[in-house]
Design a protein around this nucleic acid. Structure first.
Lengths: 325, 325
DNA sequence: CAAATTTACTTTATCGTTAAAGTAATGTAT
DNA sequence: ATACATTACTTTAACGATAAAGTAAATTTG
């Protein structure tokens, strides 16, 4: 393991100053072609690699973006991360992975992220009002993906959850359901609330909404959802699930039970991850959403005056007909 | 957006020197409790956040690990990344995501990774001999996950692919197959070769191996695999697939065709990502593999003398019986 | 009680890069 | 031919953190 080559070494080797080398490497224009060629060749020959930590220190920005979520095992997050990675890479930025235990972006999580010198943050978890204003005061733009925030000042991109709920309800009824059930995550998540609102609206319009036919996964894991349904005595003939993961859980459990029930999910993860099961679900253009999120974030980073403007966007959703309903 | 608070600001505010503040913040022992308390309180009050880029520059290490793969959309990679993230976080390191286009770790990819100042690299892609020796000379330990390298000097952790192939072949035969087929990725991947070798060995032992019953996905995408089988006139009664993704593709295509064929996959991704389909496949302890990989890498980073010792380990595999065979 | 040690700091110098300001040599305009 | 601009650099001074070396005062030791 030999010592790393720095600009200083290249300067010494070429007999030029460090500044000349630095400018040549960055393609600045007061270095004549012959000199630049000599510098570039020497740097290459010596194995020079730029130290981005030093650049970041000097420049005050790192071209690093943190992506925060609670768990990469959730396919929705890993799919979005894959698309985000592509977009940020094209824009010249790298991604740092940050997990927030218990799904909460605590001050510690926020500070350790800022400590890494990231230029911006994409989060799948709702930042508290406190974290939101900290981000503002530290000048680190933050974009929430997949949900909106109770504290209304946070930028977000999400799917049109209300419409999604409506589509799901309409489809279940169209498929013949008379007593549909809704299995939803904690209502303190805006996306859960919105999906439920759309679902309720549509069912109410069709005269089929029953407030008893709702299960909130508050202290229940998805695996327990089906058992809870069975024990409650509720007999649904169709289920709208908060997301595909819950839908899969319920389908699995029902299958073991020999029951075949109509299920509609949300996210259309099968579009990106091949699965030998076509779930009926609500889809959207995930790649586009990731691309827009990345572009907006970079725009805010590179034009700080844009940070005052709020950006909040709903992406369209559509029904994906599968074999589950 | 106010100016970031530095050690200097805390020093000025407390009337102490920067060094005293630095030492207090790092819990060094020549700062009396009263002074330390004052410094910590002042840092907290002013909103001081350590600049890790500066620390990294001074210290020569960043506590950053790069994870390289070609595509996070592959569930196997995202699952392993989730476990790696957990392990590295526990060890005090963060993960930087790096994608290598076309699955090749080119010199450019390697240099841009080193440029970020990572202390070590985990890769799912086989590094060329050149990249391997570059990593060595730059003192950046690199661990290959999931396969071994043709260039034998690279550290790796992988599953016992040969045993996996044997288990798959044995199971297909036990399930009644007389004319099984093997669909495998390019044989230049050691894991593909090993899985095939084990499969072939077992079938040969049972007197059922037919060299015609092999399809290599060289210029074929997984989606084309089933079409290729059909067009070839081969009529297999069972298929061993290189991984679960290919297995799913084949099951999907066969299902559309109304054909029900026995399939065994590899990776057991359903263990970590809930799917309403129980594939018969080869499983292993992914979490343990990720944990060991992280620990070995950190050990090599923190004890450079360990970098000479090669670390190569096979993790045990087992058959997971599902509904596909 | 003088010398030695310890405590609680401060000062200096450095990590690698780069913006800003400075300079010497050459070329251009009047 | 003198002033003025341009070219091709060099020098200086940071960015923020910290190791190493230095120092003054307080405490312990022989």
């Amino acid at each position: 393991m030999k010592k790393r080559i720095t600009i200083k070494d290249v300067a010494t080797e070429t007999g030029l100053s460090m500044q000349a080398v630095s400018r040549a490497l960055r393609g600045k224009d007061d270095i004549p072609p012959a000199t630049r060629k000599k510098i570039l060749e020497t740097a290459e020959r010596l194995g020079y690699v730029k130290n981005l930590a030093a650049s970041a220190l000097k420049a005050g920005h790192s071209r690093l973006i943190a992506v925060i979520y609670d768990n990469l095992l959730n396919p929705y997050f890993s799919i979005m991360t894959a698309y985000l990675q592509d977009s940020f890479k094209n824009l010249g930025y790298s991604i740092l992975i940050v997990t927030a235990p218990h799904g909460r972006i605590t001050k510690e999580v926020f500070f350790s992220t800022v400590s890494r010198g990231v230029d911006g943050i994409i989060t799948f978890l709702e930042p508290s009002a406190e974290v939101g204003s900290l981000a503002m005061s530290y000048g680190v733009p933050i974009i929430l993906l997949g949900r909106s925030a109770a504290c209304g000042r946070i930028d977000y991109l999400k799917t049109d959850d209300r419409k999604g709920g409506t589509l799901a309800a309409a489809h279940l009824v169209k498929a013949g359901c008379k007593t549909p059930l809704c299995v939803i995550e904690k209502m303190d998540m805006t996306c859960a609330q919105d999906r439920f609102d759309g679902y309720k609206e549509e069912l109410t319009k069709l005269g089929l909404f029953d407030p008893k036919m709702v299960i909130v996964l508050e202290n229940i894991t998805p695996e327990q959802a089906y058992a809870t349904i069975k024990n409650s005595g509720i007999v649904p003939d169709g289920i709208f699930c908060f997301n595909d993961l819950i839908a899969f859980d319920i389908i699995n459990s029902a299958k073991k039970d020999g029951v075949n029930i109509k299920v509609v999910g949300y996210d259309n993860i099968q579009e990106d991850i091949n699965i030998p099961y076509r779930l009926t679900t609500i889809g959207s253009d995930k790649k586009q959403m990731a691309t827009v999120a990345a572009e907006v974030l970079i725009c805010k980073i590179e034009n700080p005056e844009m940070q005052k403007k709020s950006f909040q966007k709903l992406h369209d959703v559509y029904l994906v007909e599968g074999e589950s309903a």
